[in-house]
Design a protein around this nucleic acid. Structure first.
Lengths: 349, 349
DNA sequence: CTGAAAGCGCTTACAG
DNA sequence: CTGAAAGCGCTTACAG
């Protein structure tokens, strides 16, 4: 008779069913219905069962807005980012969601493009939505977003960006990642390990350089020259290939290069290939980022350090949950682990 | 005396100020205060001014949760996506935000990774949050996400994914983009224009091929052979270079190649360069996507079609606003315009 | 033009 | 163990 009514059981057209209707069907008060569904208080198991059953039958879905009003929460986390391409932010958001979803918390995405006006607008919107907390996500660990932080008391986490004095933040362990990469090359028996990376002005470049240098020291190995800082670009890698292998430099060329990111590694590999240098036989190459679009496209595929951004997001999510529950949370910066992904560019030869 | 009180004027610590306090300070009722701030009803300008002033003074920020409860809205749009890297989704989200921000609507990001269980969980969370609408964003235009759509009445928009019967969706104009690219090459005087693209199973590959073919027909020009379908990979482009230029094929090689995406174009250019073919002198190359990480890295930089995803997001956002206001909205698929970005790989020679 | 009152859908002391 | 009542912070008919 009403064809639009007998749709799927889980989706009913028209007005939403309320707790009051569930209570009516179960023959209890709204109070009891609420408690039954929230596992709160003592209660006859049978009553609880009946309420659950009623909710199920009606396809009840609690209105988190109403709940939010009384609990003064929105079950929502604001993610403010200036990462336009989402290269860093999306994996982090994935990690966040993964721990927050079970707790009913969703992520409000706010992308501010480094525009102060837009940032302020976005922040106001997040405030009006009464987000339960804020994650500020950047693209580099030594810069902060142009944000005037909102009222105190709101949990705020910084990821992939500078962490202000007294704040709490999560950053990938750049130095540790560089150590993994370098140690891997040492273990392969390489003895002339060069480092080719981004601008010295980037803290992550400096940290990776430190990891490389210290690991060599730990192994009583010499570095192949000083690190070559430059652009985070293929071009930089490409030109470095010529520089390292092209002319006669009166010194043996490196037998391994640890690159500060995958783009540089890609350029290097292209340059080496053009020079007829074999990878990994003559030179092993390791990158940083595990950006698959690059790591899989190089010939041979690229060994590289994965920053573990999903895991970083998970940690941040757990930190957030602790903060909103008033549990202690590690102040300052927490460095989350990186992982070496071994591919053919550093195969054992 | 209370150093923590005299912080910035826009941020006050502690409990939020409510409309009631604003009303009190302005010496009006809550009703009037509400109307004053919402520009609703007739009102003595002076009263309105006073209320505004009071709100300003107190740093009042309306609680959108309370408002949502009475208006049965959340001022929130759910963005459900299976695009893990966010390559398509992030620009779309940017476009969405750009039109929605002014209307106080924020975007709830829900990334479901093609996992039906996760998708259902995410969808439930969005339902409980009472999103005002849903944007379902995919990675390819001929597939739909594994979603069981929620209750009718909720505005739903499909972008970058299959649009179900009777639904409303926004897709980039693949065919139009291919036409732009091909016409550009024709206008440059190229007469042997090849097409190198992704798998035939992808509708976007088929549409781009059509755009190429029809444009040649319109110009009474012959195609250089049939389109070469293959992977969406650099590898495919690289190998095609050898195929087209390597062996003696008893036919002139193409003087232009329109590639189905930037990765293929990148591979092709690498292959051609290795063969000593000059770009653009011997062959002009055009890509598709305007993925800058590729388009700027090729030597020379790549002319390519930009899908206009930010604009697509804007259109979808406007469609959503119309839907929630009960205004008419174009049913079926709307194709949004693409744009040719000319760089050196197709420079006039 | 302005205000008192009801109500949105929940949760949560407070009684019984 | 269960329920009646108050209240979260707004908006919105309805009166004046």
């Amino acid at each position: 008779m009403q064809p639009q009514k007998n749709r799927s059981t889980s989706t009913d057209s028209g007005a939403r069913v309320t707790l009051r209707e569930v209570a009516a069907l179960a023959g209890v008060s709204v109070t009891t219905a609420s408690r039954a569904l929230n596992d709160a208080g003592r209660m006859q198991p049978e009553t609880r069962r009946r309420v659950r059953q009623a909710a199920q039958t009606l396809g009840y879905r609690p209105n988190s807005i109403a709940r939010g009003l009384v609990q003064n929460r929105s079950f929502t986390l604001g993610l403010l980012t200036n990462d336009i391409y989402g290269r860093f932010t999306l994996p982090i958001a994935t990690g966040l969601s993964r721990v927050l979803a079970d707790r009913g918390v969703s992520v409000l995405l706010s992308s501010c493009h480094d525009d102060p006006r837009m940032t302020r607008l976005n922040l106001e919107a997040l405030e009006e939505k009464r987000v339960d907390g804020l994650v500020i996500a950047g693209r580099r660990i030594d810069r902060s977003l142009p944000v005037e932080l909102p009222r105190s008391g709101l949990p705020i986490l910084h990821v992939m960006s500078a962490v202000p004095e007294g704040g709490v933040g999560f950053l990938p362990d750049d130095r540790g990642g560089a150590r993994l990469a370098t140690q891997h090359l040492v273990n392969l028996g390489r003895r002339r390990i060069a480092h080719l990376t981004g601008p010295r002005g980037f803290e992550s470049a400096r940290l990776r350089e430190l990891g490389w240098r210290y690991t060599l020291e730990d192994n009583h190995a010499d570095a192949w020259g000083p690190a070559l800082f430059g652009e985070w670009s293929e071009q930089h890698g490409f030109e470095a290939a010529l520089q390292m292998f092209g002319a006669d430099r009166g010194q043996l060329p490196p037998d391994a290069v640890f690159c500060g990111n995958d783009q540089i590694a890609r350029g290097l590999i292209d340059g080496l290939t053009r020079l007829g240098v074999r990878i990994p036989e003559d030179v092993a190459v390791v990158g940083f980022d595990n950006w698959e679009i690059f790591a899989d496209a190089t010939r041979p595929p690229l060994t590289t350090v994965d920053m573990g951004l999903v895991e970083l997001g998970r940690r941040a999510g757990l930190g957030f949950l602790n903060m909103i529950e008033g549990l202690p949370v590690t102040e300052g910066v927490t460095h989350t682990p990186t992982e070496l992904v071994v591919r053919a560019s550093s195969a054992d030869t």
